[in-house]
Design a binder for these strands. Structure first.
Length: 840
RNA sequence: GCCCCUGUGUCCCAACCGGCAGAGGAAGUCGCCUUAAAAGCGAUCAGUUGCGGGUUCGAGUCCCGCCGGGGGCACCA
């Protein structure tokens, strides 16, 4: 394994008093890690009061906690390196920072590993946590480890269960029987969000449907609020997360319209275009909805059943193809159009979804392509009711969806305004009780039952006499039974169901025989409130101490992967709003700002075992050291961009760090020297760098900050070698600034520099360098003189030069005079103090 | 199909409110150091800002169209 060479002396002089030119990365790492373990510089609550005696302002730096699968990898390294720049910056700025970390430690991989190795899932889980904890410490992220916990700890999941029961008391957790996504490989149900392109997000197996009774959270009650809340997050959350959530919630405005059906209950449809009601020529209900079975005539029943068999055979992947031909069967009944009394044939088809809207639609083939395709397939009538000026859809089979003049539409005829048309029809429907304006959401309730072992047990007991009974609070947590190895094999029901001793209990209400609910919760439940627990991780009287949460929340920044744009982030927002309604929180959004990091890739491709292009974090750390790897990740580009490891240079990062470190050995002035007497040119560079870094950090432009620090290092090197010399106080000021700025990214190097500059540890809490505003004002600027937009001259002028003076200076400049010679000056644009443009 | 983001030296990337296209790094080239090479140190090279049009005294930046790359939604009525 290649190692950084040990420190050696300069070749050009064998004098042993010469400064060494490199430091031993690994020796420095073990040295400072021990010092930090002693000092614990990052305890939340340890910031000094401000000069006015007031306690320091709080900052909560949150990063998505990991699942403990093996050791840390490049992805962890990147996200925590970026996150740590923010946390350490806040410490330097004097804030009191809460920067906690823990593990999202329930989940499938542990269970699979336990089955393979004939052990308990906890064995795998807690061994990996120990490994990752050690790696994080070595990686020098400024976490406050005193607050760590794991979601699989009974002290934690006790409160997950408690919250479940509170949600249930509020009617927000309920059971229903419905077709659910089923992963045949993992042998468990999946939420809609965990099905991607018809496949299991985790294992890639094709997802099928199953009819099961399952627990749901009623997130749809909060659909409107979850949507509205995005408005205030727009400024501080990545745009793609906000739009992804908006799309996912999928609000649409329209109307419920009720159609009478002779001999049946009336059927209500949802439509966004009630104004096209006169163009409805048939109705379609979802073939797999109970409604279809209840409407169908005896003559048509065999046809419907045959069709349903066909539909069920088609996988979700087939169903996702949007261009496949329309299919369906008539149900043999007709519905009455409430506005004109027309009898519309009712069909069943799989292009109508059972779980969106009411599971039934009115078909307006002239103005909806899907309905038109269906009408074409079964030769149903097409009636245009909005004349857009385009060809009649009945002839072209191209539905028109634009604005136009209403025709064949009774009271709407001749009207051109779509909004007015919609309003008119809704008013009419509401007047005669056959419909109402309404809003519909794409968002479905959150399916949370999982048929797995390694998760949070659902604290419910099923009793024949009393039905669903909540486990009393004083009996929480419902602990997992001890199962291992083959007991965990997926078998279609939760492994818990087979643990007879555990399942069979007395009913808490009547004392009679009862069974525990044997499903466990989706792990997204665990992660929907962990950020609250960090505020008071040892609290025993509730999930969190309300006062501690008031002190720290909301999180000021949440750093993590964009893959959680709609899953975790939506659920966490939902939990926050429910807890607020329970009176436990006084805010509605948990994460004030968000930063999504890109991925680390290699040679243009995602790193994977099958491609054999993986870059091991461990080997990079061994070869280049923690600081160089962190610096490389931060410097590679904007945080949200992907980093191609083939494009970056950890060796270059290490070289830079050594160069920066070397400066600290060259400084010959003493700590505390009066910098006011130092070289002004260098002082200006230092002041400008510190000032700009402040602004750049606030907008997460960490790569530019690093570039600016490199500039400062280069300028300082020059000042030492061929400028004011190593003894000048400005050199000390510059190098101290470099140490503090570098402490955000390269804490070991920064600490070593700080120590060589004669300071006590730790540089991490040294404080942000102060900047004399006078040094930010330049005494002269370069004004550019353009003739017809081309630069002809440069003038050194005072920054507060007047427009008239600058114009006069420009017009008398020799080069300018030459350039405009013989031409008519038509206009002179002056933008003092930077620019003069002469139009000829 | 619809929506969003993006395109700057060989490569990764900077460029405030429209005002000198270049901060930083990598690679290349040339030196210094070395018996030599690597490493290190120093210097240096690098352009029709994807294409076409428009607005403007002036466009990498704003507007329109196209092309390439990335992402979201997609039978959601």
């Amino acid at each position: 394994m290649p190692r950084v060479r040990p420190a050696h002396t300069r070749k050009r002089s064998m004098d042993e008093h010469e400064q060494p030119t490199t430091y031993d990365v690994h020796a420095v790492q073990s040295k400072w890690r021990a010092v930090w373990d002693e000092l614990e510089p990052f305890r939340a609550g340890s910031a000094a009061p401000g000069p006015d005696g007031q306690p320091a302002e709080k900052r909560y730096a949150l990063t998505m906690f990991p699942y403990p699968s093996g050791d840390l990898h490049m992805g962890h390294a990147e996200v925590t390196a970026l996150h740590d720049v923010i946390a350490r910056y806040w410490w330097q700025k004097g804030y009191d920072v809460l920067n906690p970390m823990g593990w999202d430690s329930f989940g499938l991989p542990a269970e699979n590993a336990a089955f393979r190795n004939d052990e308990h899932p906890a064995t795998y889980t807690y061994a990996n946590i120990a490994t990752q904890l050690d790696s994080f410490r070595n990686y020098a992220i400024s976490f406050d480890w005193s607050r760590r916990f794991n979601t699989s700890d009974p002290e934690y999941y006790r409160w997950t269960q408690w919250l479940f029961l509170k949600f249930r008391e509020r009617g927000l957790a309920y059971r229903k029987n419905s077709p659910v996504n089923w992963c045949p490989h993992d042998q468990t149900v999946l939420a809609n969000e965990q099905v991607v392109d018809g496949r299991c997000e985790r294992c890639g197996a094709e997802v099928t449907k199953r009819e099961l009774t399952q627990w749901y959270f009623k997130i749809t009650d909060y659909a409107q609020e979850l949507l509205d809340g995005l408005d205030e997050l727009e400024a501080t959350w990545p745009a793609r997360v906000v739009t992804a959530q908006r799309n996912w919630i999928g609000r649409s405005e329209g109307a419920h319209v009720t159609f009478e059906i002779a001999g049946h209950d009336p059927v209500t449809v949802f439509t966004t275009r009630p104004d096209t009601l006169y163009g409805a020529t048939f109705m379609v209900v979802a073939a797999d909805a109970p409604l279809a079975a209840s409407l169908v005539t005896d003559e048509q029943r065999p046809a419907l059943e045959a069709y349903l068999d066909e539909v069920r055979k088609a996988s979700d992947i087939d169903r996702l193809a949007t261009d496949r031909p329309k299919s369906g069967v008539p149900l043999g009944v007709t519905a009455t159009n409430p506005v004109n009394g027309e009898q519309l044939p009712v069909w069943a088809s799989d292009y109508v979804l059972a779980d969106y809207g009411t599971g039934a639609i009115m078909a307006v083939p002239a103005h909806d392509q899907r309905d038109l395709d269906f009408a074409k397939a079964f030769d149903l009538p097409v009636r245009m009711v909005v004349d857009t000026g385009e060809d009649d859809p009945a002839a072209t089979y191209v539905a028109t969806t634009g604005d136009g003049t209403y025709v064949n539409s009774g009271p709407l005829d001749g009207l051109r305004d779509k909004a007015a048309g919609i309003r008119t029809i809704i008013e009419r429907l509401e007047a005669d009780g056959s419909g109402t304006g309404t809003v519909n959401f794409r968002l479905r309730d959150w399916l949370l039952s999982r048929q797995r072992y390694w998760g949070c047990p659902i604290p419910i007991v099923h009793c024949e006499k009393d039905g669903e009974v909540a486990v009393p609070e004083d009996q929480l947590p419902v602990l997992l039974p001890e199962l291992r190895g083959a007991d965990l094999k997926p078998q279609g029901v939760s492994p818990l169901a087979a643990a007879t001793d555990w399942v069979e209990v007395e009913c808490p209400t009547c004392g009679g025989p009862a069974t525990r609910d044997s499903d466990t919760m989706d792990t997204f439940v665990d992660s929907s409130w962990y950020f609250l627990r960090y505020c008071s991780p040892q609290y025993t009287d509730g999930p969190f101490d309300v006062e501690a949460v008031r002190q720290w929340m909301p999180a000021d920044i949440y750093v993590g992967g964009v893959e959680h744009a709609v899953l975790h982030l939506l659920y966490a927002r939902f939990f926050t709003k429910v807890l607020r309604d329970m009176g436990m929180l006084d805010f509605s959004e948990p994460f004030a700002a968000q930063l999504n990091q890109g991925q680390v890739i290699n040679e243009g491709k995602k790193m994977s075992k099958s491609l054999g292009n993986g870059v091991q974090l461990g080997s990079q750390l061994e070869e280049f050291g923690v600081d160089a790897v962190r610096l490389t990740l931060v410097f590679a580009g904007p945080p949200e961009d992907d980093i191609d490891w083939a494009d970056v240079s950890p060796g270059g990062s290490l070289r830079f760090l050594q160069r920066a470190w070397r400066l600290s050995g060259d400084v010959t002035s003493e700590p505390g020297v009066d910098v006011g007497t130092g070289d002004v040119a260098l002082r200006r560079v230092t002041a400008r760098t510190v000032h700009d870094a402040d602004e750049l950090l606030a907008s997460f432009r960490f790569n530019v900050v690093v570039a600016r620090v490199m500039e400062l290092v280069n300028a300082t090197r020059k000042a030492i070698d061929s400028g004011c010399g190593p003894a000048d106080p400005a050199v000390r000021e510059a190098v101290e600034a470099v140490a503090v700025l570098l402490s955000l990214v390269a804490p070991y190097t920064a600490e070593e520099m700080w120590s060589r500059l004669g300071h006590e540890p730790t540089v991490a809490r040294a404080g942000w360098p102060s900047v004399d505003p006078a040094l930010l004002v330049t005494e002269s600027v370069t004004a550019v003189v353009q003739v017809k937009g081309k630069v002809k001259a440069r003038l050194e002028v005072s920054p507060d030069v007047s427009a008239a003076d600058l114009e006069a200076l420009a017009l008398t400049d020799e080069a300018v005079v030459r350039a405009i010679e013989g031409q008519q000056v038509r206009r002179v644009i002056v933008r003092e103090p930077n620019l003069v443009n002469i139009v000829v």
